[in-house]
Design a protein around this nucleic acid. Structure first.
Length: 423
RNA sequence: GGAGAGAUGGCCGAGUGGUCGAAGGCGCUCCCCUGCUAAGGGAGUAUGGGGUUUAUAGCCUCAUCGAGGGUUCGAAUCCCUCUCUCUCCA
């Protein structure tokens, strides 16, 4: 959510910034709602104050054993008007809230302006894609060839967009998770948490999945939703909390499965593990001082890059343009890994600075040690990395002519010394 | 599954219709006093919103005692629903 004061004072400036990301802010509609809100709120609070004063007097009079019927009659006359006004006020406030709740974040000045994902800016390219002297296979052919990956079985158990992994491939996924967590915890200073995979609507509102992206979620009959990312569980740990300034920054990580309905993705990446309803991810979250968040975004991105480097996977870095950054994001870097079978780079991590956007939605604050006042923190998050896609990348990049998968050196200790996955 | 108890400020804990946003204690901050590894005295110390304002200063004001409804001139206190915690029984 954007700062309502900023919105009130400089609606045109905000509209201009939002326009760069393709969002049309109806300034006239907003101003009209705001004007209505102000009139109603001032009037309502005036009456409430009147009622409070009278009621207090009644209490005093009765306490002294005096007659209060005159005041009582006076305050009785306020009743209907007050009820009506407060109903009108809450209706307008709800409208305003709904209006603001679907407004995306304002992009940072350093974000390239663009009209589509084609305008994303490549800022780095690391590693060189390997050249193959044989006909390469994609991860599906490799996995099924090894008899350790089955989409048919998953379809039988559940439906489309799920996978079953067996034996060494199942272990490889687990190894990757462990490997990533170890690096982030031991080398990058993150604190690990185990968190719920089902969350309530307050949490989903806090991190911005609700109200706008309801259709992307799997929601249970109990009213809870499966997390689409651990960002929801981790970041919401800060909801309604006030931390000491000197305790910032907080760096949190968690490994969780993620669940996405992929509504609107029909026909997209239907083959293989690239776009699944359920996948594993190691998530990185920062809770920090507003002055530092853009510095930390660079660190966060490097932490994610480290994993790709250790696995010796070629990748590139994109600075997403205004048209492509996510709803909550003020600035986003995507890391894309090289997938030989697709002959292109595919997203494997997305690292974003949300600024105060999520913090405002969930009242996540710190106490300024100089002024003693509370201020909103900034929140950042990034994948470190998407484990399923990392598995795909390793399979495709490390295949040999026989259809075996060679294990990257850094990962071999996590595979009990295994160097090749074969039949 | 059944029965009961509870949820109050950073923490503990009073408060069952009225000058209560809330006693008291602890903690914390500031000040005073004190020559000895400390004690004493005083003051302050929740959060969010709105109005006014050059102002994130001040002033005024509204809301919040688990959440949401209701009764009432007035609700931490009474009623209803929900969530969570604890105890006992199965």
């Amino acid at each position: 959510m954007l700062d309502p004061k900023l919105l009130r004072e400089q609606p045109e400036a905000v509209a201009e910034k939002l326009a760069t990301r393709g969002f049309v802010l109806d300034v006239a509609a907003f101003n009209a709602l705001e004007a209505e809100r102000k009139t109603l709120q001032v009037e309502t609070e005036k009456l409430q104050n009147e009622r409070n004063v009278h009621s207090k007097n009644i209490g005093i009079l009765k306490g002294q054993g005096k007659d209060a019927s005159a005041v009582l009659e006076q305050v009785n006359q306020l009743g209907d008007r007050l009820t009506q006004l407060s109903h009108e006020l809450s209706a307008v406030q709800e409208k305003l809230h709904d209006f603001c709740a679907v407004m995306p974040n304002v992009p940072h000045d350093s974000v390239p302006i663009g009209k589509s994902e084609d305008d994303n800016v490549e800022t780095a390219r690391v590693g060189t894609p390997r050249t193959f002297s044989f006909e390469i296979k994609d991860h599906v052919a490799l996995g099924e060839g090894l008899g350790q990956m089955s989409f048919d079985k998953a379809a039988k158990l559940t439906g489309s967009r799920f996978v079953v992994l067996h034996k060494h491939l199942a272990k490889l996924q687990r190894a990757l998770t462990q490997f990533m967590l170890d690096i982030h915890i031991n080398e990058h200073g993150y604190e690990e948490s185990y968190v719920p995979y089902l969350v309530n609507d307050d949490s989903l509102f806090g991190t911005g999945q609700l109200p706008k992206f309801k259709e992307d979620l799997f929601t249970t009959t109990a009213g809870y939703s499966l997390i689409p990312t651990a960002e929801v569980s981790l970041t919401n740990l800060m909801r309604d909390e006030i931390v000491r300034e000197e305790d910032l920054p907080l760096q949190w990580t968690a490994h969780t499965p993620c669940f996405r309905s992929e509504a609107g993705a029909y026909g997209k990446d239907t083959r293989g593990m690239i776009r699944q309803h359920q996948f594993e991810k190691v998530e990185l979250v920062w809770i920090c001082h507003p002055d530092e968040s853009y510095n930390y975004l660079e660190k966060l991105r490097l932490h994610a890059e480290t994993i790709l480097q250790r696995l010796e996977l070629p990748y590139r870095v994109l600075s997403l343009c205004t048209a492509d950054i996510g709803f909550c994001s003020a600035k986003t870097y995507d890391l894309e890994v090289w997938l030989p079978a697709q002959n292109c780079y595919r997203e494997i991590s997305s690292c974003s600075n949300m600024g105060s956007f999520q913090a405002r939605r969930m009242q996540a604050r710190f106490r300024n040690s100089k002024t003693g006042k509370t201020e909103l923190v900034h929140t950042l998050n990034g994948s470190g990395l998407a484990v399923g896609r990392t598995l795909v990348a390793i399979m495709e990049n490390y295949q040999d002519e026989a259809g075996n998968i060679h294990i990257p050196k850094a990962l071999q200790p996590y595979m009990g010394g295994l160097t090749v996955i074969g039949k």
